[in-house]
Structures are given as structure tokens and as C-alpha cells.
Design a protein around this nucleic acid. Sequence first.
DNA 1: GCCCCAAAAG
DNA 2: CTTTTGGGGC
Lengths: 260, 260
Amino acid sequence: MRIITWNINSVRARTNIVEQLVKTYDPDILCLQETKVQDHMFPTDFFEEIGLPHLAIHGQKSHHGVATAAKAPFEDSFKIDWCEKGDARHIAVKIAGGPTLHNFYVPAGGDVPDPEENDKFAHKLQFMEEMTAWSKGLKEPSIVVGDLNIAPHPDDVWDHKKLLKVVSHTPIETEGMMKMIDAHGWVDVMREFTPLPEKLYSWWSYRARDWNAADKGRRLDHVWVSPSIKDTAKHMEVARDARGWEKPSDHAPVIVDFEF
Amino acid sequence: MRIITWNINSVRARTNIVEQLVKTYDPDILCLQETKVQDHMFPTDFFEEIGLPHLAIHGQKSHHGVATAAKAPFEDSFKIDWCEKGDARHIAVKIAGGPTLHNFYVPAGGDVPDPEENDKFAHKLQFMEEMTAWSKGLKEPSIVVGDLNIAPHPDDVWDHKKLLKVVSHTPIETEGMMKMIDAHGWVDVMREFTPLPEKLYSWWSYRARDWNAADKGRRLDHVWVSPSIKDTAKHMEVARDARGWEKPSDHAPVIVDFEF
DNA sequence: GCCCCAAAAG
DNA sequence: CTTTTGGGGC
């Protein structure tokens, strides 16, 4: 079973590359973030046409929004309202004969890494705290995927020192993420297959002139599994080629194959 | 010598179909209206690549804008500032070994066909008056092309009666256009090749569900020549197919072949 | 409908 | 750099 997670940066503006991803990498389940579309305007017909007719979507106008699309029906699906903000940042599905799959879009956190001065950063930290508490209490085997907007390790960014004061790689965020991982014993699947200290990125800014040559990337996207199902993950790759497709997202898809 | 006039509704948003037009219909001179781009941002490289490297452009930010592109150099080019508004609505070129070619974008005129209530309609009427006076004084053989935003004859619109109170087909506009034609003795080339009462359109609204089947068109685009060079026009067609291309303009190109 | 622009957001 | 929105224009 192949699961792909991808921050698509508007699903309606990028049906072309979603189709290209599905044709090229053939996911069984596709988890999207930043769909930027209300549920009643979601392109359901398109997902049917590309062979992923089963949808669990949680969207809002303009911002955020997540969607999980699959070849086969889910046993169940539900949303969690993190920070009681009504934001569309999470959707969970129960995979038939498999674990529960949580699709997250964690707040980016704005520019200033100070919760006193920047409400968006405070929101990001509170979101992580709630995820940490939730991780601690979580009993059933689960998968967390999505854009968590934090690159936790020095080798998850192109320049550790330069990024220590840049939101996504500040100590309060990276240490918070490690606490969240410890709270459940989450297994960082990407790093199981590409161990430290190898560089590993999933995001390259639109603003860079030549993103590929400059390679100033960050690993903002993640796939975590409960320790009890660690060995079900058989393969991982970052589909870096998709970052170079026509009208790309600034994120690359992360692909993981499981055997449940 | 093939001349094509086309309201392109943003030249930068439609380089694809400009290329398709050039490949399909191979104009020697292409006159565009509503280029919507300042001169320093005009896609000159693109026009070089498609074989029309010689440019006379008159643009402004956001609105209006005309451009005349050709395979061969012009002998001269100049602009006229109609109504002293500084609008980019005209560019003229002297064709080597041929007449002077005037490329116009006449004001659309807003919604309410009353010059007292609607400044845009007053502007349109004043523009026509200035063009009429200019036509009267014009000595050298000339060609006028462009989006004149008036469909003068009953068979230039899909429903004459329904459009009598709709800007582009009101009596004050259609009669004004006939006066302008008389002022110079302009020969309406499109109607030489497709005589009344045959229906002839060059524009179909974006808002129509199925523009082709409904066929609620108007002839807003024109090609006129001085009476002395009437017989140099050898062929005319409206490239209606272009209205159905990918991301179309709401206007179709008008093609005229000349032998100077 | 579809273009432009200006803001806000990433 | 790229997306969204809402307003203006046609």
C-alpha cells in the first residue's frame, strides 16, 4: 500500500500535476495539504477520473485545507479542531485492515519566532502542544503525515546555523517537535530510510532563482508511525522531480510504501 | 500580404494562442488590441521567436493597449492621443510599399447608453467624433483595423431588436459609425466579402454557457480601407475557430489578404 | 467569464 | 514567487 503526502498549494490550481503524480507514482492513498477550497467546491469529479474516488476532505475558503483521497473506501473518517480555531488543518481516516491515518497541516507560524510578538507563532506552538498531549494519549496504531512546517534536525535544512532564527528551524520548534515524537514514540519513517546525517528536504522556496541548483531546501513534510507498526514501512522516497514539473507546488511529495 | 486584427484581451496571458494563430494563419502583420501591458513589459522576445520581430506598440498598465507586429520593418510609426486622455488606444504604421495602417481600440462605453449619465459612453461618442473629423481630413490611402466596439448593421448582431438599447448597437452609435464611414468613404472590407444580410460576428461573450451553439455574437471588429485602395483587398475571413481554442479571447481574429 | 490590480499569506 | 480575495472593467 502506497501512501503519498503532498502540500499541493491549491488543489484546484494544480489538477494537472496531481494527475501527473498519480500516473507516475500510483498512490493507493494521497494526502494533500493546503487544498485552499471549501468542501462544496472540491474537485470530486477530477479525483474520480484519476482513480481516487474515495475522499475525506476538510476544507475552508482561501487558506489551509486537507484532503485524503484513496482507491478503496475508508472504514471511517473524522476531524479534530486543534486550538479551537475552526481551522481546516486535520482529517483522519481509518484504513480498511490497517491503522488510522492522520493528515495534518500545521500552522506555518509567520515570520517572527516570538510567541509574545507574533500570534501566528504562538498558534503554532499551541498546536504542537496539543499534538503532543494527543500523541501521549493515543493508543491505537496510527500514522501521522503532512506538512508539519518544522525541519527538526540540522540535516533537515540546507544550512543549520543560518536557519536557527528562521521560523521552521528555531530551537523552540525543533525541541518541541522532538518532545512530540517522544510523547508517543513516533517513528520518523523518512529518517529510517534516509538516516542522519544525510541531507533530506521536501520543500524549496518559490523565491529561489534556481531551486534545484541552489538546493536551499527544508524537510517540512513528515511521515510518522506508531512504534508497533514501525516494520510495516518498506520504502520511502521524496519525489523531488515533482518540484520541477509545470506550475509546481513548493513542496515535493513524500512517498512511503507499507505492508499492513 | 495578410493582415490580421485581433482583440487579444491581455497579450501576456495569451501567448499560447497568439503562437497558434501565427502558425495556423501566418499573418504578415498582426494588429492586437487590449494588450494590457506597459511597453517596457511587452513580450518582445516572444514575438521575435514567432517570426514577427518588428513591433510598434502603445501600451499602458492594466487597460487598453495596442500593438502591431510584422515580419518586415515598417517605414514609420506614430500614435494619436484621442480625446486628450493619454489612453493607449491607437498605433499607426506605414507599411513599406503600401498604405498607412491604423490600429484602434475604441472605448467600450460602459453599460448605460446615455452620455449625460455615463462618462464612458460620452467618451466613446467623443472618440467617434474625433475619428470622424480625422477621417474627413485624411488624404493618403489608409487602412483602419481594430476593435471599434460598435456593430453597425442589424445583421452584425444576433438579435437587432434585443440589442437596440445595448451599448455597441444603439442608434446613436450605429448612426455615428455610418457618419464616420461616410466622412472618408471608408470601404467596410468585411462586408465586401460577406455582404448584408448575412450574419457576421467577431465577438462572443465569455459569459455565454455555449458560445458556439447559442451564437449570440456581435461584429465589434472592423477592417476599413480608403476608397482608392478598395480593390487591393482579395480575401476576408473571421477565424471563428480561434474563439474555441484553449483559454480564448472573447474576440475572433479577422483576416484580410491584400495585394498592394 | 476572464482579465487586471492590490494585499495578505506562504 | 505563487496563491487567494475582492473590486473594476468589459
